[in-house]
């Protein structure tokens, strides 16, 4: 299984993922062409990272009206979405259907823009300093999040001791 997984509460908002992604896919730096995003809001700004969840039963593919489906899960690597550029009718139904708002639109190619986990070796993960981006299966994410959660609970117990 090679999915891109996000432990959002670890993210520092550095946008390294938004730089690495278009570099490997488009050979240029341009967050407009990234398949992973960090949303910023408020002052001082808070931030939230977002990308395709590699759904096991992807709503975007369900919603796609073409035959064959022009957006489909890449089962060779067990994660990420692929686009059939010749078949896609550029309707944007996949964008509407994604429950995580994790599909964008390629400004030059005029085509859905979605994470393909770099065919199994996602570049963004290599530059995620706080390790908010993880690669693996859903159990990997569950284990990582459980570790973070446990750490917080243990800290709370420690605080009680120190009082």
């Amino acid at each position: 299984m090679t999915m891109l997984l996000i432990a959002a509460e670890r993210c520092t908002g550095c946008r390294m993922c938004e730089l690495a992604c278009p570099l490997v896919h488009e050979k240029a730096f341009n967050p407009e062409k990234s398949r992973i995003w960090i949303e910023f809001q408020g002052m001082p700004e808070l931030y939230y990272p977002n990308a395709c969840r590699s759904c096991g039963k992807p709503p975007c593919a369900d919603a796609c009206p073409t035959t064959p489906k022009s957006i489909y899960r890449d089962e060779r690597v067990g994660g990420g979405m692929k686009i059939l550029e010749d078949v896609c009718i550029r309707c944007g139904r996949c964008i509407e259907a994604c429950p995580f708002a994790a599909i964008d639109w390629h400004p030059a190619k005029n085509m859905p823009l979605v994470c393909d986990v770099c065919d199994g070796d996602p570049e963004c993960v290599k530059y995620c300093s706080p390790q908010a981006l993880i690669v693996g299966g859903k159990t990997t994410l569950a284990a990582e999040r459980r570790r973070d959660f446990g750490r917080v609970q243990i800290e709370k117990v420690k605080e009680k001791f120190s009082k």
Binding site: T12, G13, C14, R15, M16, L19, Y47, Y127, S129, P130
Partner: peptide
């Protein structure tokens, strides 16, 4: 924790 753009 927060990072500026492109900062590890």
């Amino acid at each position: 924790d927060k990072g500026c753009m492109a900062c590890p």
